[in-house]
Write a protein that binds this DNA or RNA. Structure first.
Lengths: 222, 222
DNA sequence: ATATAAATTTAGGCAAGCCTAAAAAATACA
DNA sequence: TGTATTTTTTAGGCTTGCCTAAATTTATAT
């Protein structure tokens, strides 16, 4: 049974190993779990002894199969609890992270199963992130960056790649959320901001900085 | 902010201080939190420094107002989560204690408020124990021991004073639960076991040992 | 290639919470 | 009352997870 703290490291390592160019270094882990590099070195040794990671001094870190399983179980719990908080307790998607960080450490496989059932076996969390199944299988994030879409296209928003309160509030303030169907009317060649029309609303401008953190699914191309 | 462990001690002290003849000693606390007396002494010193208890060496322990508030907040969370587990996730009343012991340490006042609302402001938990309000006010346990009821009376079950899985399963097996309206038909003078008829069922026998752990509310006397 | 900078690890220490063994205080009892 | 027993506390130690400072390794830049 990993400790609370070990779970946080494992989850951090998993997260850092996701995406395009993974940077799983002692320093990046330290930043993720809010501690110092020296503490990370300590912990890496311990996790390595427990066979949760493969670790050679100075050579970087990788989860073992067992470590990955642990990570995905935590991610599953985190995301299911986020669904609970938003769907059942009416939290905003920008308010749930901290609480889910606590709830993800509750130990009871049975509880997770029942929660999953209670929530209707959701496939994604309130930010559009896929929820791993009980065997640790997880689907790919559904969508491409809005910033990569050409003018004229119509897309549906499926997720975000940034979970900060500030960013999520920004989207709320522009009434942009998961499932929004939007047409890219124009891309300003000056700053690459996008003029976007959300079905039946007046057009809005989305900065490139924001568009780089929005995942969308293009309309079936014609 | 009390630690996880401090919260467990505070809750144990509160529990031990409830009821007829409270026995809040170093040893009884040690038994409650599954540790040794020496560890309790350590912790009592610490809790005393934090003004959560009044403590004189060898002279016993008492919660301060602040300590009591802390205790009741934990009890509130524990009992609300138990309601959630039973009402929403369909757990049996004998299965929820362990999980609630974990959930009670989740820190978020707002979460508790929303949970309370989501559950419809329940007054009691699945065992009939009163749920403290957000200000730490708690009502008295509702009922008297079934073992104190005279033959001929009709009563409604309102709670239990023992939460072991074994006892709760025993009640389940006899289809005895909160809200059962039962008539005491006879008390056997030999072993004080009770012949009880639950509305519209065949009579059953309840041993005195069991009756001492069942709380009931007598019918409005006539 | 080598010096400097950056990243990482080791060494040594600290607080929390637990332990066992021993000492001290309180209680029981003869 | 004085001794034996029980309860509680203290002393000393252990592990976890963190820290700072120093040493070591790797990367960078001239």
């Amino acid at each position: 049974m990993p400790t609370h703290s070990e779970e946080n490291y494992i989850k951090a390592i998993w997260k850092l190993s996701q995406g395009e160019n993974p940077v799983v270094t002692t320093n990046s882990i330290a930043a993720s779990v809010n501690t110092k590099a020296a503490s990370v070195s300590d912990m890496l040794r311990k996790l390595s002894e427990k066979k949760l990671i493969r670790y050679e001094k100075y050579q970087g870190v990788e989860l073992t199969a067992s470590g990955r399983k642990t990570a995905l179980s935590i991610v599953r719990k985190h995301r299911l609890w986020e669904v609970f908080l938003v769907e059942k307790l009416n939290y905003g998607w920008d308010e749930v992270h901290e609480i889910a960080e606590q709830l993800e450490h509750i130990v009871s496989d049975n509880l997770v199963d029942r929660l999953d059932l209670f929530l209707g076996h959701p496939k994604v969390d309130p930010h559009g992130d896929p929820i791993p199944d009980k065997n640790g299988r997880i689907s790919d994030p559904n969508g491409v960056l809005l910033s990569s879409i050409a003018a004229g296209q119509t897309v549906t928003m499926t997720g975000v790649t940034e979970h900060s309160t500030a960013f999520l509030r920004y989207l709320d303030n522009h009434s942009i959320g998961l499932g929004c169907k939007m047409q890219i009317e124009e891309i300003n060649s000056f700053d690459f901001s996008m003029n976007v029309r959300i079905k039946g609303r007046k057009a809005i401008t989305i900065t490139q900085a924001a568009a780089k953190n929005i995942l969308v699914k293009p309309e079936r191309s014609r």
